[in-house]
């Protein structure tokens, strides 16, 4: 899932300072699961903003709605009848959801309440870890299911570097060395031949905005 964390409260407050009526739009998918921007977080943030603005003698009217997914057109429709009643929209979705919202209502200021952080896993309640940089050319088949692009601090395709420190990364002794883990896992699977060959330079397909059209589908001429 996409993991986000709420922006510092003062930053959000500052983004909203010129608006009197704001609709806070939560997202019911990834950011709800990672406890950053679902229905509950929308309610909490609204209560905090409401109180803070009252104390500043500059009250704000905060509306609340959480849609299933802000990155999906069909769920945004529910907002069409609401947005005109507000000066601005605050989104608690990931960067993709926020942008899709802004695209749908180009005349409204759309402001982010979260910082989108990574594609990661749920290690425990409230505890998430990054696993993927969406590089568009997955090498996990060669690296024992451990991503060197994400998990190696230098993103080395042909590691480990000389900084491996008793199985940990040179940047932090609590950060496991990705290539040490790759080596250990492949060794246990008797698959070390996977990393005997040199991996050539990456094509870095993530340097321009990417589009995916699945086989059997095409982009409609008009949306």
């Amino acid at each position: 899932m996409i993991v986000a964390k709420r922006k510092p409260f003062n930053e959000i407050k500052s983004l909203l300072k010129d608006y009197k009526k704001v609709l806070n739009v939560g997202c019911g998918t990834c950011v709800a699961v990672c406890l950053a921007g679902g229905e509950k977080e929308v309610a909490v943030l609204n209560a905090e903003l409401d109180m803070a603005r009252k104390l500043e003698d500059n009250p704000v009217e905060m509306g609340a709605i959480t849609v299933e997914r802000q990155c999906d057109r069909e769920y945004l429709e529910a907002l069409d009848s609401l947005v005109n009643g507000y000066d601005a929209l605050l989104s608690m979705a990931c960067g993709a959801g926020i942008q899709f919202l802004a695209e749908r209502y180009p005349e409204k200021p759309v402001l982010p309440a979260v910082d989108t952080t990574f594609i990661g896993v749920n290690q425990g309640v409230g505890w998430y870890e990054e696993r993927c940089r969406s590089c568009s050319s997955c090498v996990l088949g060669l690296t024992g299911g451990i991503c060197p692009v994400t998990m190696c601090a230098k993103g080395l395709y042909n590691g480990p570097c000389g900084g491996t420190n008793k199985g940990n990364c040179e940047i932090d002794k609590n950060q496991p060395c990705a290539w040490y883990m790759i080596y250990e896992r492949l060794k246990a699977q008797n698959r070390l031949d996977c990393i005997l060959e040199i991996t050539p330079p990456s094509d870095w397909q993530n340097q321009i905005p990417r589009t995916v059209i699945q086989p059997g589908y095409k982009k409609p001429e008009k949306v």
């Binding site: 230098k154 993103g155 080395l156 395709y157 040199i198 991996t199 050539p200 870095w204």
Partner: peptide, 14 residues
């Protein structure tokens, strides 16, 4: 921002 466009192995090859 660390660049690491290519790694040392790939640099040798280049």
């Amino acid at each position: 921002k660390g660049v690491f466009d290519i790694d040392s192995m790939q640099l040798i090859g280049m």
